[in-house]
């Protein structure tokens, strides 16, 4: 397994299983090029992690190791074949915060599974753990989301949401009522749905996005 130390903003393309330890406040952008396992160790920092994947299965572990560590994790993927995304979040310190934004687009009639688990043990008070899980089916794909919160402490702030479906017809009406074509409206919505930060550096992902 690759071991990578992150101490500043970085852009990395990954082909192998990797363990990333984040030591300083940073913004990390990852492009996933193979089906791999990733482990993130979040030390006493605030980090935003953006992960982009096209047609890949991915397994992720996030260890919030230190008190007051904050991780905002954005996973964006485009799927044409059957794929699985599994993520486990472990709050290993009190007052740690992990917010997940898992957004996928299921383009063809394939299967896409999101298995999302956040765990807070009894010892760790005042943690914040949130999940926002959404899959847009462009055709009639079979998508599944399993949002799981395993919380063994009363003093926790937590929320989860799961949506599988198409873009709202009323949203499409709003956009087209301004003269935007249906295809352009889809392009705008897909970009808003999948790209959470400056798209510079993820040109291949953006190219893939424009083909949907």
């Amino acid at each position: 397994m690759n071991r990578i130390l992150i101490d500043k903003d970085q852009f990395i393309a990954l082909k192998k299983d990797s363990e990333l330890t984040i030591k300083n406040d940073s913004v990390l952008t990852l492009v996933i090029e193979e089906n791999i396992d990733l482990v993130f160790n979040i030390e006493k920092v605030k980090t935003d992690i953006y992960v982009y994947a096209v047609d890949k299965s991915l397994s992720v572990t996030i260890n919030a190791n230190k008190e007051k560590s904050i991780c905002n994790f954005y996973y964006s993927n485009i799927n044409y074949d059957d794929n699985k995304y599994q993520i486990n979040v472990y709050h290993k310190a009190p007052k740690s915060e992990v917010n997940l934004y898992n957004h996928g687009v299921n383009v063809e009639n394939n299967k896409l599974l999101y298995d999302v688990t956040s765990k807070v043990p009894k010892d760790n008070k005042e943690c914040i753990t949130n999940q926002d899980n959404r899959i847009i089916n462009i055709k009639d794909g079979k998508s599944t989301i399993r949002p799981i919160l395993l919380i063994d402490n009363y003093d926790i702030s937590s929320s989860h949401s799961a949506y599988i479906g198409k873009f709202d017809d009323d949203v499409m009406f709003y956009l087209t009522s301004r003269g935007i074509s249906v295809s352009k409206a889809y392009e705008l919505l897909l970009k808003g749905f999948l790209v959470h930060a400056d798209p510079e550096g993820i040109t291949e992902f953006m190219d893939e996005l424009s083909k949907i």
Partner: peptide, 21 residues
Amino acid sequence: DPMAIDGVKLSEFLKTALREK
């Protein structure tokens, strides 16, 4: 009751609409 659309910036939305027109 105008819709809220997450991720689509007002400026980008208007630029797209103007380009289409």
